[in-house]
Design a binder for these strands. Structure first.
Lengths: 216, 216
DNA sequence: CGACTATTTGAGGCGTATCAAGAAGTGTGG
DNA sequence: CCACACTTCTTGATACGCCTCAAATAGTCG
């Protein structure tokens, strides 16, 4: 079972955007949006493109904790600084809201406060499922779970246009590029999925049912 | 760097306890407190002992997402059901609060709502650091990080009385019992830590500095 | 003390990482 | 449009870290 409860909890946030107006900003591919431990001044909503939130060890090992896709909100912090580095996976546009504006609202409007809680809880839910994946699933299960998550979140009609590279996928799943590639090849050979001829990052889910069987 | 921001955010929750009174309940070692997907009726605060929150795959592979130690709150849900199974690691006593009481409060008192958000954020912070550990650290780094986390959370004076078994530690770190044991033996041989003669679960941190060097 | 469980230690195997090379895809300038 | 350089992805060979299986030791509890 793999995460993704893209529900309708954003309503108050949308309202917020409408009420306060939020500026649109563009980020080029691989551009850093903010760095870990920087003061958390802004909150973002992906409009188009994709963003990765990651943590990095001193020797460069990287763990991507989340991918943010259109409609997702990221950069929401309770503490003083960001807990991640956020980078654009591809060219990305995002709405930006200053943090103090939102905090001002949340301190008064219990609806807003509760929608922030919902947002945080959803993130937590995703993280906890990811813990199980990282700690206890093998490479094939990880890749299958990833594809199912993306299929779900990209409102999949069987055709996945992945914005991220194999390296991003690997760092999300705690694997290497080669292992991810081998898992995908394996699933292709089993006719569970196919690669589009247009791009290596377009994947056709030929048998979603059977893909589920590869996940846990 | 390993988690644990045991701050003073519980104040409103404590207040809540005082205001509404919360019944104390006892759980024997390995007793289930609640199961994953059960309706989430209650919220708990550990008084004495320890609790593990875990997820289990169909074939029995288990991932412990968190250990709850005295003072910790667990079982707080936004959705209808629990996201984990919670079990007593050792004989444990906990204060129990009915969920609807807390929700009643949170819907009116913005202070309470914000303290719930703080609580959730702290859990999220822990989970995200754990993602990095599970995805990208090797066994020695994992065990070192675990010891440092416990040292910190058990208000360590250099002597760790771990409530959990090696199996619990393994399932927390995404390892096997044997690997955990080997890492501990290695650190003992390096004189970074020592085993108490009283119990295998009492560990003496002989060189916290050097232990830090083993973590990432 | 005796039965049982938890932990440690050893030997060997498996899964994923690493290293290396080639293929496929992308972008730029002519 | 092609030529070229560069990046990304795939595939193969090998290495290594952690898991598995097995057995000995230590600890716990009646």
């Amino acid at each position: 079972m793999s995460v993704s409860e893209t529900q309708v909890l954003d309503a108050p946030f949308i309202t917020f955007h409408a009420r306060f107006g939020a500026s649109n900003t563009f980020f080029g591919k691989d551009q850093e949006i903010y760095g870990e431990y920087e003061p958390a001044h802004s909150i973002y909503e992906v409009v188009g493109g994709a963003v990765r939130s990651c943590k990095v060890l001193s020797d460069g090992r990287r763990q991507i904790c989340e991918f943010h896709l259109p409609g997702d909100i990221f950069g929401l912090e309770n503490g003083a600084s960001y807990r991640f580095t956020a980078e654009a996976v591809v060219d990305t546009s995002a709405r930006v809201v200053r943090r103090h504006s939102l905090e001002y609202l949340a301190a008064r409007d219990i609806e807003v406060a509760n929608s922030l809680l919902s947002l945080t809880t959803r993130t937590l839910l995703h993280a906890e499922n990811h813990l199980l994946l990282l700690g206890r699933k093998n490479s094939l299960e990880k890749v299958a779970a990833f594809l199912l998550e993306m299929d779900h979140r990209l409102a999949g009609i069987g055709m996945l246009a992945l914005p991220m590279s194999r390296l991003d996928i690997a760092d999300y799943l705690g694997l290497t590029v080669e292992t991810v590639s081998r898992a995908l090849s394996y699933l292709r050979d089993k006719r569970v999925l196919g690669f589009s001829k247009v791009s290596q990052r377009e994947i056709v889910l030929q048998d979603r049912q059977r893909l589920h069987e590869f996940d846990s």
